[in-house]
Lab assay of single mutants.
Amino acid sequence: TRVETATETAWISLVTALHLVLGLSAVLGLLLLRWQFPAHYRRLRHALW
Rank of each mutant, 00 (worst) to 15 (best):
Leu33Cys: 15
Thr1Ala: 13
Val27Asp: 02
Arg42Leu: 11
Val15Ala: 09
Thr16Cys: 12
Ile12Thr: 12
Val27Arg: 04
Leu14Arg: 01
Val27Ala: 10
Ala17Arg: 04
Ala26Lys: 01
Thr16Ile: 14
Val27Lys: 03
Val27Ile: 14
Thr9Pro: 15
Arg45Gly: 05
Leu48Pro: 03
Val21Thr: 15
Leu33Glu: 03
Arg34Val: 06
Arg34Tyr: 06
Ser25Asp: 06
Gly29Tyr: 00
Ile12Phe: 07
Leu28Arg: 03
Leu24Met: 15
Ala10Leu: 04
Glu8Tyr: 06
Thr16Asp: 01
Ala10Asp: 07
Tyr41Pro: 05
Leu14Trp: 00
Leu31Cys: 15
Leu14Asn: 02
Ile12Met: 07
Ala17Ile: 12
Pro38Met: 09
Leu30Val: 11
His46Leu: 09
His46Cys: 10
Trp49Arg: 03
Leu20His: 03
Thr1Lys: 12
Tyr41Gly: 06
Ala47His: 10
Ala26Leu: 14
Val3Leu: 11
Ala17Trp: 05
Thr7Asn: 10
Trp49Ala: 06
Leu22Cys: 11
Ser13Arg: 10
His46Met: 07
Leu44Pro: 03
Ala17Leu: 12
Leu20Asn: 03
Leu24Pro: 05
Arg43Leu: 08
Leu18His: 02
Ala17Pro: 00
Leu48Arg: 05
Gln36Val: 15
Ala6Asn: 12
Phe37Trp: 08
Trp49Gly: 05
Glu4Gly: 10
Trp49Leu: 06
Glu8Asn: 02
Leu20Lys: 02
Leu32Ser: 09
Ala17Asp: 03
Ala17Met: 11
Arg2Ile: 10
Ala47Met: 08
Ala26Asn: 03
Leu30Phe: 14
Arg42Ala: 12
Arg45Thr: 06
Arg42Thr: 15
Ala47Arg: 12
Val15Arg: 04
Ser25Lys: 03
Leu24Asn: 01
Thr7Gln: 13
Trp11Glu: 01
Ile12Asp: 01
His19Pro: 04
Arg42Ile: 09
Gly23Leu: 15
Val27Tyr: 11
Leu18Val: 06
Leu14Thr: 01
Ala6Cys: 08
Gln36Asn: 15
Gln36Trp: 14
Val27Leu: 13
Ala10Tyr: 04
Ala39Glu: 15
Thr9Glu: 08
Leu33Gln: 05
Leu24Val: 10
Val21Phe: 13
His46Trp: 00
Leu22Ala: 11
Ser25Pro: 04
Thr16Glu: 00
Thr7Cys: 01
Leu32Thr: 12
Leu20Ile: 11
Leu22His: 04
Leu32Cys: 05
Glu8Arg: 02
Val21Pro: 02
Arg43Pro: 06
Leu14Gln: 02
Leu20Phe: 13
Leu18Asn: 04
Ser25Val: 13
Arg43Asn: 08
Leu33Thr: 05
Leu30Arg: 03
His40Thr: 09
Tyr41Glu: 07
Gln36Met: 15
Ala39Tyr: 11
Val15Met: 06
Leu18Phe: 14
Arg2Thr: 13
Leu14Tyr: 01
Thr5Glu: 00
Glu4Ser: 13
Ser13Glu: 03
Ala39Met: 13
Leu20Asp: 04
Trp11Tyr: 12
Val21Lys: 01
Thr1Asp: 08
Gly23Asn: 03
Ala26Phe: 15
Leu30Gln: 02
Leu30Cys: 14
Arg45Cys: 06
Thr9Asn: 10
Ala6Arg: 11
Trp35Ser: 14
Gly29Gln: 01
Leu30Asp: 03
Gly23Ala: 15
His19Cys: 01
Trp49Pro: 00
Glu8Lys: 06
Ala39Asp: 15
Ala39His: 15
Leu18Gln: 02
